[in-house]
């Protein structure tokens, strides 16, 4: 059975004056119709680059993209810029992080939504405007008809993100990519936007890739989680599995660095170090430099040999230690122990 969307061995490299920057290094990702997948990882892990590659936004640029992106049986990587246009907006919609800068400052919100509709539908300007007003109503903007004539800067942050969602969904795409859509919003508005996205998703049965670094959002919204590190998938599993038994030391670190309400006196446990330099990738495991578990393994293994993504049922992990059963037991608390700190619970 082939998936609705299947990304295999995706590489995205940017030539710069200092050399080749490898933002994505063999990324794998698959998605079924109607499924919501959370794509998590810290800044620079290649989440956004992966989604932009799916959208074909690197065509006509210096970036080198290789691998396969199979969308309903079509390889998007081999499509020309012109053929790709038929997918953008129509079959794949995208919501960006900062709606103020992602919307054109000189056109009204209604014009921008109507434009998105008119690209793929042969209708009059007037009819497209009606669709836009209708769509603004569906994303919960009050007095949609008059608000459609407002400019993005006249909207509040939450309303702008709603308008952005309306723009992405106006052609009812089968796949929605949401690139950190709630990062720029305050918490109460975040919850509303998440509700809105999941509500609209159920209405239209579209698949969603939800890019975020907020594990709380993932737990609320997603069925499956894909954890990215250094431009690779290091772990993927159903959301329950990830939270109950995270397999990769990096995933454990992510969870330990997340504030928890129950953990009143606890301190956050940041992952020491920083992501690998993408200019000159290490030969071995990309996380080895920051990994506490690597010390438990035979000398040099993690630094010399890149681990493979091993499949254990519906749980995939890319880690030598996990492969050897060293991490089989334990949850987030093991992450604390493995850093040699006692959990302050």
């Amino acid at each position: 059975m082939t998936s609705f969307l299947s990304v295999k061995d995706l590489h995205v490299e940017f030539p710069t004056d200092d050399g080749l920057v490898s933002a994505v290094n063999g990324m794998d990702l698959s998605l079924e119709r109607g499924e919501t997948v959370g794509l998590v990882g810290e800044s620079g892990s290649g989440k956004s680059v992966t989604t932009q590659a799916i959208m074909g936004l690197f065509k006509d640029s210096k970036a080198r993209v290789s691998g396969t992106i199979d969308f309903e049986g079509t390889d998007l990587i081999s499509l020309s810029e012109n053929r790709m246009r038929e997918y953008r907006g129509k079959k794949i919609g995208m919501i960006f992080q900062d709606p103020l800068s992602a919307m054109h400052p000189f056109y009204t919100v209604g014009e921008q939504i109507a434009e998105a509709y008119r690209v793929h539908n042969q209708v009059s300007k007037k009819a497209a405007k009606e669709v836009a007003v209708d769509m603004l109503g569906r994303v919960g903007i009050p007095a949609a008809r008059s608000r459609a004539d407002s400019y993005p800067h006249e909207f509040s942050g939450g309303m702008r993100q709603r308008a952005m969602i309306a723009m992405a969904l106006v052609c009812e795409p089968e796949l929605l990519i949401a690139d950190e859509p709630t990062t720029a919003l305050d918490v109460t508005v975040q919850a509303q936007i998440l509700d809105l996205i999941s509500g609209l998703q159920q209405e239209t049965n579209s698949a969603v890739i939800f890019v975020t670094h907020d594990l709380g959002v993932v737990a609320e919204l997603c069925q499956r989680v894909v954890v990215m590190y250094g431009g690779q998938c290091v772990e993927q599993a159903p959301v329950r599995t990830i939270f109950r038994e995270p397999g990769h030391p990096y995933t454990r670190g992510l969870m330990a660095s997340m504030p928890a309400l129950s953990d009143e006196t606890g301190r956050l446990k940041p992952i020491p170090g920083s992501p690998p330099a993408l200019l000159d990738l290490p030969k071995g495991c990309l996380f080895a430099e920051r990994c506490e578990v690597a010390k438990l393994l035979p000398e040099g293994l993690c630094r010399e040999e890149r681990p493979l993504l091993r499949i254990h049922g519906d749980h995939e992990v890319r880690c030598h230690a996990h492969e050897r059963g060293l991490l089989a037991v334990g949850g987030p608390s093991a992450a604390g122990n493995m850093k040699g700190e006692s959990a302050d619970v």
């Binding site: 959208m55 936004l57 960006f96 723009m167 992405a168």
Partner: peptide
Amino acid sequence: EDFMRTARAKGLA
């Protein structure tokens, strides 16, 4: 600018 990326993401020519 971000809005230029959005314009491409809409599928505009």
